[in-house]
Write a protein that binds this DNA or RNA. Sequence first.
DNA 1: ATCCTTTTGTGAACCGACGCACAAAGTCAG
DNA 2: CTGACTTTGTGCGTCGGTTCACAAAAGGAT
Lengths: 225, 225
Amino acid sequence: MKSPSQPRDRGIPDATVARLPLYLRALNGMAEKAIATVSSEDLAVAAGVNSAKLRKDLSHLGSYGTRGVGYDVEYLVYQISRELGLTQDWAVAIVGVGNLGRALANYGGFVSRGFRVAALIDADPEVVGDDIAGLNVEHIDELEAVIKRRGVSIVVLATPAAAAQEVCDRVVAVGVTSILNFAPVVLSVPDGVDVRKVDLSIELQILAFHEQRKAGGPLMAVDSQ
Amino acid sequence: MKSPSQPRDRGIPDATVARLPLYLRALNGMAEKAIATVSSEDLAVAAGVNSAKLRKDLSHLGSYGTRGVGYDVEYLVYQISRELGLTQDWAVAIVGVGNLGRALANYGGFVSRGFRVAALIDADPEVVGDDIAGLNVEHIDELEAVIKRRGVSIVVLATPAAAAQEVCDRVVAVGVTSILNFAPVVLSVPDGVDVRKVDLSIELQILAFHEQRKAGGPLMAVDSQ
DNA sequence: ATCCTTTTGTGAACCGACGCACAAAGTCAG
DNA sequence: CTGACTTTGTGCGTCGGTTCACAAAAGGAT
């Protein structure tokens, strides 16, 4: 007995949330190809996951499939988008306009999904004032003012490691609770603030570990048949 | 009864491997500050993890601590580095020299930890021949030749989504088994090939989900006290 | 040499996630 | 309307990871 008007649960597992964007991308690809309906099996293949897992994930949002048929692509795109909060417009500020910050500012994948780069901020007087991706780079002194004025709710940190914690403290102080951190440091934040970390060198190190294993690990006596 | 010469296990949990680079970074920071010895508690704080987890992680590598004292910083740096395969030099090729590829090529964090950008490759005749970060950009036609000649074992994909699978197939065909993929596609590879994915827009979407929850989810009747 | 303090390494309980396998629910043909 | 077929949604066993809590080990002081 579930109320159809409130089908989804307050608590969607983190593992599920992390996969929803994957499903969404696969679904968008199908919508472009004018595919109207898709089975969990086909969608699972496109997203690179197990089909039972996919069905369980989707069941957390509600009961949006039709047995014997599958899922309506457009409808599912809408439901997932809404669940992820992509039906609204998110203003993002990028702090740190070095190589990476510049790349992020120009990255098309942001705009395409409800995200809008609303501000570029840097400390270097050399870059401040420059136009990048159609935006004027503003000075770090304006950080708090810009965040408030533009209604920024998500901050991307692309600063050097040494500056990240300080910038983080400042944006948290003006009420930002969602941070995407590219700086190679562990940020400490108060409860209620979400930090997600992307660390290029860590990913490479994990690859190196496995690569080394394949090649015959450290001190490994390879079963050299 | 464990042989002291072969303390480490063949199977280190994936979750542990993913954290080793974190410990390594924290330890390097301590080494720079001339800290000789560190307890699991202090190191855990620096790495942002639970201390019991840290101890269990390290115990998978061997028994490198001293009860009542802690861990020798330099020794632990060496052991983790060796386990991760960072004592050897890894040649990395970056395919796709757009904004992101350029940023990666200039990113200092690679070189610092045993990784060396050995080749830049692109398909656009406009970029081929350019010098970026001291390297000459080579044409995609040379992909296989360059990989073999330079001994590249890890490939970073920073191409547009549409090109990623094809490039992936080609590098796998010449024997590459470690790929770091920045393109927003699910790559399909044969068994034995490791693919790690970094997806900027997915990270933002996950943040948006939580941000929306905090603000009062979709259709949410906020307990507006 | 013995006791006291500190800190490691790990046994064991707990928790969430995964995937199998199946009943329930819907479609479609005749 | 009925029956065969398809595909969803989920109960349940399993597994890997996290955390607590403690015994074992090391060092230093007396």
